[in-house]
Simulated assay, not measured.
Amino acid sequence: MAEATMEEMIASLKGRDFLALDDYTPEELLYLIDLAIDLKKKQKAGEVYQPLKGKTLGMIFEKSSTRTRVSFEVGMYQLGGHALFLSKNDLQLGRGEPVWDTAQVMSRYLDGIMIRTFEHRRIIELARGATIPVINGLTDLEHPCQVMADYQTVLEHKGRLKGLKIAYIGDGNNMVHSLMMGAAKLGMHISVASPEGYMPNAEVHRASKENAARTGGSVYVCQDPKEAIADADVVYTDVWASMGFEEEQQEREKAFRNFQVNEDLVKYAKKDYLFLHCLPAHRGEEVSEGVIDGPNSIIFDQAENRLHAQKAIMAALM
């Protein structure tokens, strides 16, 4: 990308929110992925790059996390800024203060907000009230920062994204919603296999298909793992009971018993398939040890790239 074009892209992204991948064009998403790869190279080379020097990110955690907290906090430090951890017990939000009021006040103190929460409506309300960028660290509907890291990792290993097939086997949750939209935006083919009663959100499915029609990609949802995984370049799964659904564990184990990603299932994928999992993983449940710890697994490259992908998002928006 030419320098002038990069400057134009930075100008167009500055001050925006990062709530859902559907808010961004394919060109903007590819720019952010390229920026993440560049920032990763800088960090590996020991090059100091601090475009956010003197800036502060407020990190609201209404859901706990390992990777999200560490990657955002370290990322802000590496970019020259400061990250402030705020649990639900640290804020008046937990005691009934309107989201709008919290957003207005935090906008007077901070340069950006990252929130990891439950209802997607909550992050939309926060963004409407804030005058600074709001970044989605996870909601029950979307997990866009994770998917930016996922597709960065695939690009690094495969050398391209457009035209690749990704198969997702498991719960039709926030993870697959962002994967579907990201694949559609980037001209990829995604096939999803989920059991009846646990299919992806119908509106996200529709919107993803509309985007795929414009980029040459495709979105397919079924209930047969073998059908979904056939000739896949990338195989992805997630826990059967996401945070907040732990009480359904036994019920979900029965529903998902034929949806484990194991050595028998991955035989239907391409031999050089990549295995991804957003972690934490339950070995022996949604994925066998032989797959997640096998030669096709790149889960720790994927986890590392949360740092670099989020640095790119923060640097561009803040």
Rank of each mutant, 00 (worst) to 15 (best):
Met1Trp: 14
Ala4Asn: 14
Thr5Val: 15
Thr5Asp: 07
Glu7Phe: 15
Ala11Arg: 11
Ala11Leu: 14
Gly15Met: 14
Gly15Tyr: 15
Gly15Gln: 11
Leu19Asn: 03
Leu21Phe: 02
Asp23Met: 15
Thr25Arg: 11
Pro26Ala: 06
Pro26Cys: 07
Glu27Asp: 08
Glu28Met: 07
Leu32Ile: 07
Leu32Met: 07
Leu32His: 03
Leu35Val: 02
Ala36Gln: 12
Ile37Ala: 14
Lys40Cys: 08
Ala45Met: 11
Val48Ala: 07
Tyr49Ala: 05
Gly54Trp: 10
Gly54Ser: 10
Lys55Asp: 02
Lys55Gly: 01
Lys55Ala: 04
Thr56Asp: 10
Leu57Trp: 05
Leu57Lys: 06
Met59Leu: 13
Ile60Arg: 06
Ile60Val: 13
Glu62Lys: 05
Ser64Val: 11
Thr66Leu: 12
Thr66Pro: 11
Ser71Thr: 15
Phe72Glu: 06
Val74Cys: 12
Met76Ile: 12
Gln78Tyr: 07
Gly81Tyr: 08
Leu86Asn: 05
Leu91Ile: 10
Leu93Lys: 01
Gly94Ser: 04
Gly96His: 03
Trp100Val: 04
Thr102Val: 03
Ala103Lys: 02
Gln104Arg: 10
Val105Asn: 08
Arg108Val: 10
Arg108Thr: 11
Leu110Val: 12
Asp111Leu: 05
Ile113Gln: 01
Ile113Pro: 03
Ile113Phe: 02
Ile113Val: 09
Thr117Gly: 03
Phe118Asp: 05
Phe118Pro: 02
Ile123Arg: 03
Ala130Ser: 11
Ala130Glu: 07
Ile135Asp: 04
Ile135Val: 13
Gly137Lys: 04
Asp140Val: 15
Gln146Thr: 09
Met148Ile: 15
His157Arg: 14
Lys158Phe: 14
Lys158Cys: 12
Arg160Asp: 14
Arg160Leu: 15
Lys162Tyr: 12
Lys162Ser: 09
Leu164Thr: 07
Ala167Val: 07
Tyr168Arg: 01
Gly170Ser: 01
Asp171Asn: 02
Asp171Arg: 00
Gly172Asp: 08
Asn174Ser: 11
Met175Phe: 13
Met175Trp: 09
Ser178Ala: 11
Ser178Leu: 06
Met180Asp: 08
Met181Gln: 13
Met181Trp: 10
Pro200Lys: 09
Ala202Pro: 13
Ala207Trp: 15
Lys209Glu: 15
Thr215Met: 11
Gly217His: 08
Val221Asn: 01
Lys226Tyr: 04
Glu227Ile: 12
Glu227Ser: 07
Ala228Asp: 05
Ala228Arg: 04
Ile229Tyr: 00
Asp231Cys: 08
Ala232His: 01
Asp238Arg: 00
Val239Asn: 00
Val239Glu: 00
Met243Gln: 09
Glu251Thr: 06
Glu253His: 03
Lys254Ile: 13
Arg257Met: 12
Arg257His: 14
Phe259Gly: 00
Asn262Phe: 01
Asn262Thr: 01
Glu263Asp: 04
Glu263Met: 00
Leu265Gly: 00
Val266Trp: 00
Lys271Met: 09
Asp272Glu: 10
Phe275Leu: 05
Phe275Ser: 05
Leu276Cys: 05
His277Trp: 00
Leu279Trp: 01
His282Asn: 06
Glu285Tyr: 04
Val291Glu: 01
Asn296Tyr: 04
Ile298Met: 03
Ile299Thr: 09
Gln302Gly: 04
Ala303Lys: 02
Leu307Tyr: 08
His308Ile: 14
His308Gly: 11
Ala309Ser: 15
Ala315Val: 12
